[in-house]
Nucleic acid binder design. Structure first.
Lengths: 219, 219
DNA sequence: CCGGTCTGTCACCAATCGGTGAGTAACAGT
DNA sequence: ACTGTTACTCACCGATTGGTGACAGACCGG
């Protein structure tokens, strides 16, 4: 007599199994990585574990240990992808605008970063993870992310120099911090510090406020 | 023959047990609440659970169910305390300064909030929790917190009005978002967006940058 | 003294977690 | 066709989780 799970398995294998990738290591590795990224993006780091990833990837967790050396290696692989984030999600050109001053630059970068983060749930989860835990895993993710971001900032800056008398590192840290927290808070609860952030109208207000903030310091 | 735990129990009860509060419900309730707050502040929301709280409170988890109706009720009790946060941690007076303009006010409030958040690990954990999860628990905590904060802001504002032509709600949301993310990021990893935040010198730089940001928009 | 209520403890449950060792099925080389 | 390697699955482990029912002892009113 067959139990229900066995019946279901038979049904699956017997009826329709369009892409039953079998014995393709690299494909399995890719499937695992993809499953991990999707899981992290959709569920957050709370329930991010070996079992959950394996379940979503449709394979045994043992393979994660074998191919990635456990969760740590898998997270590191995710971090390696982060290096490409900037070039994937943020346009290189200036959108037809001429960036004459440092203020022009920072205003544009701020808005680009805001939109990019708003559109990328995985990156949001990672940022939230960074400020919630301090394990080795997260530290490496954080490092990869800030490194990629710094590179992008340097590349976009070109030869523009910030106004004298102010500390651009500290000011920019505050600006980017505000963007990150605004987006994360909105993604989590639909508002930030009492400011509702749901429809496009709300975000336009936030964007103009951000512009004002940037222009206030950098002119 | 006695096992080791029994021996230890005998030793404890036999030798020295200064305050063995027995059958004091309100005291137990307070102990549970205190344990929950300390646990959340020290360990974060990741390992915040019934078992951990009971372990730290030194009582059975059953009592948490009985007295608080489970973790939800306990979290709600924590949220109720949050109403007192502002008046406990943030001074009422203006520090001998005269706040003549809205810019004066916001600069002072920003710095006060920065320091207060920096000194309160529990509040930091709650903020981190808010942007990491969206359960009913967290939503209520978040509500209590933003409500208390809004009240404080209203009370401190007095009759001062923001400059015309700008959206104070959006701008202030960005400012407070930047403070929160800066402090959380620093508490987690010692830096924020590449800006190291460890010793007092680093924080002074951040404070001046914050002042500049606020003054930039509000004059 | 007895019975009931309140406070607290303990033992147990199913589910899930990360982790490992053993076994199986498909492929390649000869 | 036999053999060894590679890709993969399965069954199990101890630990921990949230949750519950049963029980023991202190207290209080009668």
């Amino acid at each position: 007599m067959l139990n229900e799970t066995a019946m279901a398995a038979l049904e699956q294998t017997g009826a329709n199994e369009p892409e039953k990738r079998i014995r393709d290591r690299s494909a399995t590795e890719r499937a695992i990585l993809k499953a991990a990224k999707n899981l992290l993006a959709e569920e957050g780091f709370q329930n991010f574990g070996i079992n959950a990833v394996a379940r979503r990837a449709g394979c045994d967790k043992q393979l994660i240990y074998r191919y990635y050396g456990g969760l740590d290696g898998l997270v590191e692989a995710i971090g390696a992808d982060l290096g490409n984030w900037v070039k994937d999600r943020i346009p290189e050109d200036t959108g037809g605008m001429f960036l004459l001053t440092y203020g022009d630059l920072m205003e544009r970068l701020s808005l680009l970063f805001l939109e990019a983060l708003r559109d990328d749930p995985l990156m949001r989860r990672i940022v939230a993870w960074e400020i919630s835990e301090n394990t080795e895993q997260v530290r490496r993710l954080s490092e990869a992310r800030s490194k990629a971001l710094g590179l992008w900032l340097d590349r976009m800056r070109g030869s523009l120099t910030p106004p004298k008398g102010i500390d651009p590192a500290a000011v920019n840290a505050l600006i980017f911090a505000s963007i990150q927290h605004l987006v994360l808070s909105a993604a989590a609860g639909g508002q930030c510090a009492g400011l509702v952030l749901k429809n496009g109208k709300d975000w336009e207000k936030a964007a103009t406020a951000l512009k004002r903030l940037v222009r206030g310091v950098y002119g």
